[in-house]
């Protein structure tokens, strides 16, 4: 059977498309899950003390991009992993890192204030700001970001409890508007690429 020129071109095109498809599947990361908030419509707020007991408010960060993570310092896996990704992102941004303020909000504030939040965040990256308020301030901040957290009794855990929580990393733009969530496990390189497209 002889193929016409057109048939040959179509075959080559089909093979190239298959290769591109497979390559794309290999190298494109999984789509991060989208949180329920609509981009640019939610303006999350917080008023929480930092490690030095100064009140810090969401409004003081206008003009900067915020990367906000809720967690607790007794968490051995999820929190160090995410904060390590954030540290990697900050390094990757180079000089543009000053446009981004990473913030770690404790959902276990009483214990974290006792353990010390600043030395914890600084061990990951000196630019990460740790905030730990009282129960009401913490609940208000979490509600504003529409995140979930709960104290769970765990007999064998330190102090007899652990925390379950929404593990996403949230991006707030310089106007204070919620832009997106990077779901737990999003690689630093992907977060970095997304940020670099924005500024």
């Amino acid at each position: 059977m002889r193929l016409t020129t057109l048939q040959k071109i179509l075959w080559i095109a089909a093979i190239l498309a298959s290769i591109l498809f497979v390559a794309g599947r290999m190298w494109l990361p999984a789509q991060p899950q989208i949180s329920s908030a609509a981009t640019g419509e939610l303006r999350p707020q917080f008023d929480l003390p930092d490690g030095a007991d100064r009140m810090r408010s969401s409004t003081e960060f206008r003009g900067q991009w915020l990367l906000v993570f809720f967690g607790f310092t007794n968490c051995p896996d999820v929190c160090p992993t995410t904060l390590s990704e954030v540290a990697e992102v900050m390094e990757g941004l180079g000089r543009r890192a000053d446009r981004v303020q990473p913030i770690f909000i404790s959902i276990d504030p009483e214990r974290d204030r006792a353990l010390g939040i600043d030395d914890y965040t600084a061990a990951f990256h000196p630019r990460i700001l740790g905030l730990a308020g009282d129960a009401a301030q913490t609940r208000a901040a979490a509600d504003s970001f529409r995140i979930y957290y709960e104290r769970e009794a765990a007999e064998q855990a330190p102090d007899g409890y652990t925390m379950s929580h929404s593990p996403g990393l949230f991006l707030i733009d310089p106007d204070g508007l919620w832009q997106r969530q990077y779901s737990y496990g999003t690689p630093a390189a992907q977060i970095l690429a997304d940020l670099q497209e924005r500024f």
């Binding site: 968490c75 379950s164 929404s166 593990p167």
Partner: peptide
Amino acid sequence: EMPMLHETVVRDGVASMPH
């Protein structure tokens, strides 16, 4: 003193760490 095996589970957008 107390090493334990845990698993991080993310279900419905919430991470917990059951034994």
